[in-house]
């Protein structure tokens, strides 16, 4: 793949130069490396996969082996400018508690997750009567790591309940590309949600 994935390209617009970032479930460190090089951002990635941790080290980013389900109590309040979590919210034990933690540590947070209200998903369930599978969600109901699927509206209701303010939001398709059509009716036409949130 050439260049940066589109959702990562969107995220980077919301990260301030020279700031400090924590990337939860940082994978091979692609985003952190990009932010380091293009915005002089400092930061850490948290990851639990052995090979991805080694890849991060090869990639020249700081990576800390840590399971997000065990909490983030090792990071101090407001110690990070932006806490980022791409495509991991739906896979953690308690997304609501992790969201609280992200906004305790971070002044701002950026979250991306697959939209279960995407029209194809809705039609899949309606027409086939089975749990939806797609390129974004390729797993069976019994072996999926995505244990907490939600829709845009679900997420926004959660944010409202917690007094979390949404600074920016956008949607991308499964190729992680933005398209005007999706922005017209994001809850139905957007496949992946990208939210920029804060408690302030």
């Amino acid at each position: 793949m050439s260049g940066l994935r589109e959702d990562l390209a969107i995220i980077q617009q919301w990260v301030k130069p020279n700031s400090q970032v924590l990337d939860l479930g940082c994978g091979e460190g692609t985003l952190l490396r990009y932010l380091q090089d293009s915005k002089n951002v400092r930061g850490y990635g948290l990851e639990i996969d052995d090979d991805k941790i080694t890849a991060c080290i090869r990639n020249g980013v700081n990576v800390i082996e840590q399971n997000l389900d065990n909490g983030l109590s090792n990071f101090r309040d407001s110690s990070i400018d932006t806490v980022i979590m791409t495509q991991a919210l739906q896979a953690v034990q308690r997304p609501d508690l992790l969201l609280d933690e992200m906004l305790r540590i971070g002044k701002e947070a950026i979250v991306t997750f697959p939209n279960f209200g995407y029209w194809r998903t809705r039609f899949y369930l309606m027409l086939k009567g089975r749990m939806p599978m797609s390129e974004t969600l390729p797993y069976n109901w019994y072996d999926t790591p995505n244990i907490h699927m939600c829709t845009f509206r679900d997420f926004e209701v959660l944010c409202r309940g917690k007094g979390i303010r949404i600074l920016n939001k956008t949607v991308v398709d499964d190729q992680h590309k933005e398209h005007w059509r999706m922005q017209v009716w994001p809850a139905m036409l957007g496949e992946i949600a990208v939210y920029h949130i804060t408690r302030r």
Binding site: R42, Y44, I53, I57, V63, I64, N74, R76, S79
Partner: peptide
């Protein structure tokens, strides 16, 4: 590791 992150140092950690 935690002392180093609190001190804003570059650190990587694996168990």
């Amino acid at each position: 590791v935690n002392a180093l992150t609190h001190a804003d140092k570059n650190v990587s950690y694996a168990c």
